[in-house]
Nucleic acid binder design. Sequence first.
DNA 1: ATTTGCATGTAATACGTTACATGATTCT
DNA 2: AGAATCATGTAACGTATTACATGCAAAT
Lengths: 188, 188
Amino acid sequence: MSLSHALLGLLAASPATGYDLAREFERDFGRYAWQAGHASIYPELGKLAARELVQVVDEGPRGSKTYDITPAGREELRQWLLRPPGSGVVRNSHVLRMFLIPVLDEDDQRAMLAAIEEQATAAAAELRVVLSTIPPSDGSPRSELGRLAAEFGLAQYEATRAWARRTLDGLGGSATRTPARGPRASVR
Amino acid sequence: MSLSHALLGLLAASPATGYDLAREFERDFGRYAWQAGHASIYPELGKLAARELVQVVDEGPRGSKTYDITPAGREELRQWLLRPPGSGVVRNSHVLRMFLIPVLDEDDQRAMLAAIEEQATAAAAELRVVLSTIPPSDGSPRSELGRLAAEFGLAQYEATRAWARRTLDGLGGSATRTPARGPRASVR
DNA sequence: ATTTGCATGTAATACGTTACATGATTCT
DNA sequence: AGAATCATGTAACGTATTACATGCAAAT
């Protein structure tokens, strides 16, 4: 279960409230790596605190609790990160959609690939803007986290964009050219 | 919930038993797109059959049931694929690990990035072999599914490899050079 | 004064994983 | 004969999502 490690990782970068963490999961972090809603975060923080991997270091205005990682938590996180990956959880509905493109007829395939290319291009452009606002290396692990995430995301979007383009080109130029395969119905 | 769509997609490519589908989820499909075990697949096939999106088209030797997608299922799948993505489930423990690299000290970062580069290189090489065994376009949607998956995976691994290399270079060449940041302990 | 954002929590339901359980067929 | 693989299923447990529920603080 990786939610606990995602939380430990974010807290290792800097202390935060459950609310702060929930917002991180809505940004780049949740967009590429791990999603979670506040309804799983709060109970999980409680469990991590019970295991003494995190602790409450401050209580603020609206009953807010700021958590920080403990040395034990940092060690647990380090072990998990350095442990050779092997099997991990992978569940990505966007990628799933891409993989299923061949079951559509050619017009639909073209439409989907064009949409993917467009989105990947837009997302990459957006990330370039994000990256330009982060100082190249200000040393804080929290900004490093964001920068690494953005750089990785950019690389993935670029790769996706190029793949969509290539696949689209492989289908032939227009909706009327290059049937290349019999009509869908005849395939099965 | 995307498991149902993953099943519809695989069945749209060709009819299969629950067992067959479970094996697909252990291969490339589960490696990049969506994981599922047989214990979720069998009940889900039952539900899809009840909604008449799939149907049993053959019963074989060991009480095996071969499922196929129905026209209604195909339409549901098409709608899901063409619907503009917006929000989707993303949960990838490998990517999570990459995002958390900055919380490690520099030696650990280097070790992790080197391991990622190595694995991405090995995985890309493996996929190139897989791709060379698939005929460029034999027309069957099932083999197209596999080819697209492999091509996408290859693009992602290449991007990951390059990103790991760049990030590693950005840290400085060796374990003894370019501290660039104060010791971990002083950061917080 | 009202709206927006901060901030936390629980309950019901749905979904997924692991373990348990069974048995037929094929290969060696 | 025995092992490996095919093939399906359920039960218990753990995890996640959605909806419900509350209230303070800051901004307009």
